[in-house]
């Protein structure tokens, strides 16, 4: 028996919004530790890794490890039927071929349930190596989303250049060129507004705007985003989901042939 409950459906809606543009379908691996999802996007250039810890749920029970292949378009249709404040419970029997989403209104007067067919998906089991990154930047998630949106008007790629002074985002194309520099903040009242840089050595890497923009769909989940970069290895864009887990996106840098 698997059962996981969150007191507000809005969290699950935001998680789904953060992955559904990159993945058509995905396997949710459930264990007593929580829910894990790991999948390459359709074009095999980026990887999504989602962790929702069991202790972050309002109720969590998973008697036996369970892999649930879900069509994210169908899941999205179902979650649209929930109000943000509804309690959401996901339930499945062991070896089931369906999962049930149950939504309950705050006053307990409306209860709805939606059963969705599960899919058998070919899963790639990929290992994520431990990596010491040359630069780790933490910055407001909204600011990062804004920068990616603004720069994608100028070119298909963004160059991220990080030194101990700050981080620079650049793009160029037919219109002209654009540069946005962020300095490390010296002092801020609110931690979520800080820009911090941990640098071992400077890096300058180029990434596809299209993917960075897709990653910023996770912005509503977190105040801050963390960018971890080293030469010739995938960038990690991490959003921490308060008290519940995290979502990490990996994207290979573009390399001149």
């Amino acid at each position: 028996m698997f059962e996981a409950r969150l007191n507000a459906a809005t969290t699950l809606k935001k998680v789904l919004d953060a992955i559904k543009d990159l993945l058509n379908e995905a396997t949710f691996d459930c264990s007593d530790a929580g829910i894990q999802l790991q999948a390459m996007d359709n074009s095999h250039v980026s990887l999504v890794s989602l962790t929702l810890r069991s202790d972050g749920f309002d109720k969590f029970r998973c008697d036996r490890n369970l892999s649930m292949g879900m069509n994210l378009g169908s899941m999205s249709k179902i979650l649209k039927c929930a109000n943000n404040e509804d309690t959401v419970t996901m339930k499945a029997q062991d070896n089931a071929d369906t999962v049930t989403f149950m939504f309950e209104s705050q006053n307990h007067e409306k209860v709805s349930d939606y059963e969705m067919k599960l899919m058998n998906l070919d899963q790639e089991h990929l290992g994520i190596p431990e990596t010491d990154y040359s630069c780790v930047v933490r910055m407001p998630a909204m600011e990062f989303a804004r920068i990616c949106r603004d720069l994608s008007q100028f070119g298909e790629s963004v160059i991220i250049c990080c030194t101990k002074e700050g981080v620079k985002f650049s793009a160029s194309g037919d219109v002209g060129s654009a540069n946005i520099k962020l300095a490390q903040t010296s002092s801020v009242d609110k931690e979520e507004e800080a820009v911090t840089i941990e640098m071992q050595e400077p890096v300058s890497l180029t990434f596809a705007c299209r993917y960075l923009n897709a990653f910023t769909k996770a912005t509503p989940l977190s105040n801050q985003v963390q960018l971890s970069m080293s030469a010739d290895v995938p960038l990690v864009v991490e959003y921490r989901i308060p008290d519940l887990g995290h979502i990490r996106y990996y994207l290979a840098p573009k390399i001149e042939e």
């Binding site: 095999h44 250039v45 990929l126 190596p129 010739d232 995938p234």
Partner: peptide, 14 residues
């Protein structure tokens, strides 16, 4: 594609 190759090399198949 080079990007796909980088991803493949980095995430070792288990």
């Amino acid at each position: 594609q080079l990007e796909q190759l980088i991803m493949k090399n980095y995430f070792l198949h288990q």
